[in-house]
Design a protein around this nucleic acid. Structure first.
Length: 559
RNA sequence: UGGGGCGUCGUCAAAUGGUUAAGACACAGGGUUUUGGUCCCUGCAUUGGGGGUUCGAAUCCUCCCGCCCCAGCCA
């Protein structure tokens, strides 16, 4: 094996697809689908599935469908249909005209069910839920046949039609597949195919009062759409014999189900139910809270679709249980934003400095590079004046030995501006630093000295007169531990400092015109984007992710 | 203790019996730098355990250990 081969190694699903292509299995056709149930919001785990389903189709010149698996009206709603479509489009996938609903196939599914009955492969069962459970047996004991298992085809057909016409109340009867009550695979112990549910459906209204179960419906949906490779998560592995059974009984087009491991991420949770708990209990502001692993949350936080797609590519596809380090996701967004985000100056925790020898009232414009990683981004002019704000923690009166920012008597650089020296510290009556008196060297305009002398530190600043006020929301990981679910109660592991709101920030004026969601870098601080809560009067920025902070690391390693 | 699946670096993940077990993230150290950012360099595993087959095993056989999933008229 050469190194080039190693770099091109592919996952087991793509291996299957490539082999099928090579062998001409479906006439060289690749057709996949992403089949969400519209009962909640998409999260980054779904993004992994979407990138596998749709990404594979794209890579092999195939097609992909978006299909809503809406077979249970009790849990579903159009609200979710809309948000799911928005999120998938945002990720950058286009299913064109191939948008389908399981409910589109209800008639066809019903016909197939009658076929099953006619070949004595399904029967109407009158057992109650509790009785079914008793008859099913346990993991170690076989089940027993339902007393209704041997009804005649005629009776079954008659009963099924009456079920459909609404003659029987919810829960009184089911249509069951006649397979094997002693199967070691619980899924094969005469699973339910149809249940009675007198509930209005968001698309079919009251046309139906019986609804197909997942195992029966899903393989038919795939078959009807001519799906070649039906990828799903690993817990469906032992449903595959059932998937195959229905298609074999009906003798119709047979897609291949392939299972892969779900995504887990450190410091967060992926369970829809538990995320809902956070929303319902007000622990987060909503499904799109920037701390949520939902796609709407990540989007609001400032994650780009490109970064998420890059991430899903980097984590790979396999079958083993795994938990990906959140640091990888953070790396992906930093990597993307470093290349594309224009730089701005923002002082989050302002400390005023006065340049003693700079003429009062004078203002000059200095040239700033918009993005050192992208020459085409050009430059802009930024106003400089006598009174400025710098970051409070860029000054230490009694400095740490490795601190190389502003210190009394030490010269540092104001980025793209001048070399300054702190000559005096003004304090309030409590002894807190109120402002700094500095001097500047007029010969160092732009930040470099003609005599070639160097300074160790460069700090950012904004002009006090010109900067605009803003609120900045600093987000951190939602949980304090890598695996919140390992705790007795995951709620207890929520990070109380996952949101810090800073109200006195000052940003360079040009940043006020930014479009909501557009990513920027606040130099030396991190990547940010304007939040939709912003108004004309109130600018609000979300911190997507901080810059890598080796200074913080130095301080931490010292302890 | 039925059935199914899975165990390779701290975390993901390659390897398809054949030279020193890829790569990425993380971590540690160093260089460059007008962002303590970026970038560059260096370091970082003998494959869950035992036996066996073989000239040769992460790959094959065998026994053991561990983890995950399944007893919805949810998906």
């Amino acid at each position: 094996m050469t190194s080039a081969d190693k770099e091109n190694s592919i996952d087991f699903i793509r291996e299957i697809v490539e082999r099928d292509l090579r062998e001409g299995k479906h006439g060289g056709r690749v057709h996949t689908r992403f089949p969400p149930e519209p009962n909640g919001y998409l999260h980054i785990g779904h993004a992994k599935a979407i990138c596998i389903d749709f990404g594979i189709a794209e890579e092999y010149g195939g097609l992909y469908n978006l299909r809503f698996d809406d077979t249970n009206p009790v849990k579903e709603d159009v609200e979710y249909v809309d948000s799911i479509m928005r999120d998938i489009k945002w990720l950058g996938f286009d299913w064109e005209d191939r948008l389908y609903y399981a409910s589109d196939y209800f008639d066809k599914m019903y016909d197939y069910a009658e076929q099953l009955i006619e070949k004595d492969a399904a029967y109407i069962c009158d057992l109650s839920t509790d009785e079914v459970r008793e008859y099913r047996g346990t993991l170690t004991e076989p089940g027993r046949n339902s007393p209704w298992r041997n009804r005649s085809v005629e009776d079954n057909l008659d009963l099924f039609r009456r079920m459909r016409s609404g003659e029987f109340p919810d829960g009184t009867r089911t249509l069951r597949a006649k397979i094997d009550m002693a199967s070691p695979n619980m899924n094969m112990r005469d699973p339910a195919i149809y249940r009675i549910l007198k509930k209005s459906h968001h698309r079919t209204g009251n046309r139906w009062c019986i609804y197909p179960m997942y195992d029966y419906a899903h393989c038919l949906e795939d078959s009807i759409e001519g799906i070649t490779h039906s990828c799903c998560s690993i817990e469906f592995e032992d449903h595959r014999p059932l998937y195959d059974w229905f298609l074999d009984q009906l003798d119709i087009f047979h897609p291949q189900q392939i299972e892969f491991a779900r995504l887990n991420l450190t410091y967060t949770i992926m369970s829809k139910r538990k995320l809902a708990m956070l929303v319902e209990n007000g622990l987060v502001s909503g499904w799109d809270d920037p701390r949520m692993p939902t796609l709407s949350g990540l989007r609001r936080r400032g994650y780009t679709p490109e970064s998420i797609r890059d991430f899903t590519g980097r984590i790979g596809v396999a079958k083993r249980d795994s938990t990906v380090d959140m640091a990888l996701l953070e790396y992906c967004i930093r990597d993307d934003l470093n290349r594309r985000a224009p730089r701005f100056m923002a002082v989050l925790d302002p400390l005023k400095i006065i340049i003693e020898n700079y003429p009062p009232g004078k203002c000059e414009e200095l040239e700033f590079i918009n993005n050192p990683e992208d020459e085409s981004a050009g430059s802009r002019m930024v106003q400089f004046s006598r009174e400025l704000y710098i970051e409070r923690d860029d000054f230490q009166e009694e400095p740490h030995k490795k601190f190389r920012r502003l210190v009394p008597g030490r010269e540092v650089r104001l980025r793209y501006a001048y070399l300054i020296t702190c000559v005096d510290v003004v304090k309030d009556e409590d002894g807190n630093v109120k402002e700094l008196i500095c001097t500047y060297d007029p010969e160092t305009r732009g930040g470099s000295a003609p005599d070639g002398r160097k300074v160790k530190g460069t700090i950012h600043w904004v002009s006090a007169e010109h900067a605009v006020p803003a609120e900045v929301r600093l987000y951190d990981r939602l949980f304090t531990v890598e695996n919140p679910l390992s705790s007795d109660n995951f709620i207890d592991t929520i990070n109380n400092e996952s949101l810090r709101v800073l109200n006195r920030c000052r940003i360079e004026p040009s940043a006020a015109d930014l479009v909501i969601g557009e990513p920027v870098q606040f130099e030396r601080k991190g990547y940010f984007c304007k939040d939709p809560d912003s108004t004309e009067k109130r600018l609000i920025f979300n911190r997507t992710i901080s810059l890598r902070d080796t200074w913080k690391k130095i301080l931490k390693n010292q302890k």
